[in-house]
Design a protein around this nucleic acid. Structure first.
Lengths: 134, 134
DNA sequence: CTACAACTTCGAGTCGACTCTAAGTCAAGC
DNA sequence: GCTTGACTTAGAGTCGACTCGAAGTTGTAG
């Protein structure tokens, strides 16, 4: 196969991003990505630009952004320059949500930690008992 | 209705826990909770013990523990004393997972933050331009 | 006696995000 | 010419965790 520099097959794109080929096609299907370039035989060819966007979208996913909102962000990027304010707003809003979610995680974890400590104390007591019993 | 002290109807339990009545019944159905006590007419009556367990299970849920694993934990509690070591292990393992997930969130958020900053700089530049233009 | 509200059950439906399947195309190697 | 493997498509299936709906029962208020 003639491998054009910088143009990746779907397999290579999957490797690079950690997404499955299925998922890459799915993202395109649902309109998260614009139709990807094609080789003469119809096969997808991912350009570095695509990959960079994908890598960033993956970070949005990792922070729990729903696909619908990722679509909004991707659409803003596609629309070109001039809407950086909107992009900024979207990202800032999302950041607040993520921080809030982390806070919930930490708060809940604190409760769980108290339970953990109580079990650990119990464990220590049992050890004490057995020491005293000996 | 004769409201026995401390025994809550499903509606009251839903209020107290923030879960829906549907969800309370669902948790019981899937075996997360033991069959709840019933009033003579067959209606559920939640005892303080139930409520306390629920409150804790809700913290586990909030930290993303799947229902299957919550069932394991609830089963250990039901089994009575003597398995505190297992409970401790389960909670400690879960805690590690949660901490790891928080770390992923923070790492991804750091990437998003860099993007946010770049948009903010851009924004600042535009402001500079307009100031200079005046 | 009737209306109403609060429950009951069980099964079906929803949602988001994949994930997989089947059937087809195409280029390269033997 | 045939097989193999990497791709293509559209549509169906899965999974977890609810969420809802329909039909029935019970107990109280008017």
């Amino acid at each position: 196969m003639i491998t054009h520099p910088d143009l990746l097959t779907i397999q290579q794109a999957a490797e690079q991003t950690g997404l499955s080929e299925h998922t890459l096609r799915y993202y395109e299907r649902v309109g998260l990505l614009l139709p990807v370039d094609r080789a003469p035989n119809g096969h997808r060819r991912y350009a570095p630009d695509h990959l960079r966007l994908l890598q960033f979208l993956i970070k949005l996913r990792a922070t729990g952004m729903p696909i619908e909102q990722m679509k909004e962000y991707a659409a803003l990027i596609r629309a070109g320059e001039g809407n950086e304010g909107e992009r900024l707003r979207l990202l800032l809003d999302h950041k607040q949500l993520v921080l809030a979610r982390i806070q919930v995680l930490l708060d809940s974890l604190a409760v769980i930690d108290r339970k953990i400590e109580s079990y650990q104390e119990l464990h220590a007591c049992i050890n004490d008992d057995s020491v005293q019993a000996e």
